[in-house]
Design a protein around this nucleic acid. Structure first.
Lengths: 342, 342
DNA sequence: ACCGCTTGCTAAACCCTTTTAGCAAGGCCA
DNA sequence: TGGCCTTGCTAAAAGGGTTTAGCAAGCGGT
């Protein structure tokens, strides 16, 4: 292994040509009039020396670095973020790009820092991922920058990727309705504040809207709506338990996410009710948890990877629509839905 | 916002000095003899124009890009990987560096690709993370490259970061012993193959070794050892259930990871046994699951973030030991251990 | 014998920054 | 008056590539 990296000049020297010729040949330019022999000599030299171009040097001239900045507020806290990153990494790799990943914790100061850091490195574009619901997002990015919003939308940067929560919400209701549930359906985790305040989480608003639309279209009504502020297992447990103490007619639970459903499972077990024979459960996200539960939880999945992938593809696609791109939410059928007993 | 990025030449022009002067002043060089007035003019100009140096151009000259390649086999599949990345991102940010994150899926071809991709971008060093146990790891990296192995060790790259599994294994036993358990302790997930074959997973071998050492030193013996190949909830459920059917004297479960423990919880519930009053449970990893269980699972945590952080700090530390660096595994006490009833 | 067109290639500028070598002016000393 | 040392700065090269402008040689036509 040579001590120094092989440069274009090395290749040109070995081929007995100028760096200009070598550059044009290696870049496959067709408008060049260089002889077939020159092509062969340069290609051979490059292969023999194991030449690899220096991306930074090239970028200096061409303003293309084959590098994309992926800035998100949170990376590790939720599996959601990793799925997005995973999809983005893979799509980027396939397009010959590489990702500069930064995390901001949602703090505006760090967001600005992150944007500067990636711009300093001449990225070809920025994916801005938002995992936590947030009021608004405003850091200044130079107008010429190629930006895609991931899981968020923003007026200044119209190209965005979002899960198709409206259809997803409808799908969840459809799953229960198709199994024959018409009465005794409870909504777990409905949250009036969120429903009203689209800034807090645009996507969850759509989820609820889809649920309500589909219920209405089928002439169905919830037997109960249990509201809670946070959507952690503990809350699912608490509200479900208190619901079950009051009501004996609950036959299905529509949970706003899998963690609530997880808590609901525990509450159902505590009350001696079996899933799905006594009570069906359906929820959202396809959290890792959902497959661990017994029986497996039927859920409407957040399409993490597809979204991550889409964000990269959009970023690199020059004639994309400057618009929201909705990614379908797959239905993951496991064993938590069953026709009502009575 | 100006259309073009501000360059050093712009700053120099506005300050009425040469780019050389501007460069030296902005880099805070003291061996320079430039007047105080020149300093002031340059600094003012830079501030007024909002100058930010072009990292790529600078790197061309200095061979430092303030960028680190983080190559791992898997990023999203396990929470483990995200924790590592999270720690690494944060440490890198604090050191003014940025991470180029690549994923290889553990395929050698993609590993080589990834290494080339980051070297092409002149990274200051490479962190090589291995999440899945693998036989060995051998892609060729130029010898001068600054490499830190994360969660793996390798002869060619001696600097590595690993969890202190030996102490962790001992700690788990200690937790049970200190609560008064001496008999009826079962080991769930012991795996003879792994124990023998350190290539498959060096860290798990240490975990077992720690457990066995501490047991021996305290004169304790396992009442049962349930082996299984994979460590998913389903397996924990299966082996625990069959164990409980055979034996009525089990008072504590030492599970090899939290997912097994999760399955074990379900099996215990099926048998009408309560955690921790009938049976104590302790395990490893501090998976997200552990906090969702009821009662919370006491576990010896994998120090994801600390490891990710350490890997960066080591990479940037020029006089580090060329050696394994062991990161302590914190004990997370929740509610799953209780003194035995009898 | 000269013009003009192709063909095949190279010199040099350019991207942005750092760094080395050295210039010009002023002061001091002899 | 000349030589030497500081002081304060700049020109230019270097780093690795891309791109533009244009040179030289060969050839066909008149």
């Amino acid at each position: 292994m040579p001590n120094k990296r092989v440069t274009l000049a090395d290749v040109a020297r070995r081929a007995g040509l100028s760096t200009a010729a070598a550059s044009m040949i290696l870049n496959g330019r067709t408008d060049t009039r260089l002889s077939a022999e020159a092509h062969a000599r340069v290609n051979d030299a490059a292969a023999e020396l194991g030449y690899r171009p220096n991306v930074a040097a090239r970028g200096l001239r061409t303003r293309k670095t084959l590098t994309i900045g992926f800035i998100s507020d949170v990376v590790a806290t939720t599996r959601f973020a990793s799925g997005l990153i995973q999809g983005a990494l893979d799509a980027a790799r396939k397009a010959g790009h590489v990702l500069l990943v930064l995390e901001t914790g949602g703090e505006p100061a760090r967001e600005s820092e992150a944007i500067e850091a990636v711009l300093d490195r001449q990225v070809d574009g920025i994916i801005f991922g938002v995992m936590r619901a947030r009021e608004l997002f405003v850091p200044d990015i130079p107008p010429a920058t190629n930006v895609v919003m991931l899981n968020a939308s923003n007026k200044k940067h119209p190209v965005s990727v979002l899960p198709d929560e409206l259809s997803g919400g409808r799908a969840a209701v459809r799953l229960l309705a198709d199994a024959g549930h018409r009465n005794g359906i409870a909504l777990i985790g409905h949250n009036k504040e969120v429903e009203k305040n689209l800034f807090r989480s645009a996507t969850v608003g759509q989820r609820i809207a889809g649920i309500r639309t589909e219920m209405a279209e089928r002439g169905l009504r919830f037997a109960a709506e249990e509201s809670c502020w946070d959507w952690e297992p503990q809350h699912g447990y608490d509200v479900t338990l208190s619901l079950l103490k009051e009501r004996r007619d609950i036959r299905a639970l529509l949970c706003m996410n899998d963690r609530l459903a997880f808590g609901a499972y525990q509450a159902l077990a505590d009350r001696g009710l079996s899933v799905p024979h006594d009570v069906s459960v359906v929820s959202f996200d396809n959290d890792e948890l959902a497959s661990y539960l017994r029986p497996g939880l039927t859920t409407v999945a957040l399409p993490h990877e597809a979204m991550g992938r889409a964000s990269i593809e959009l970023l690199l696609d020059h004639n994309r629509r400057p618009d929201q791109h909705l990614i379908p939410m797959p239905i993951i059928e496991r064993g938590s839905i069953h026709p009502p007993a009575d």
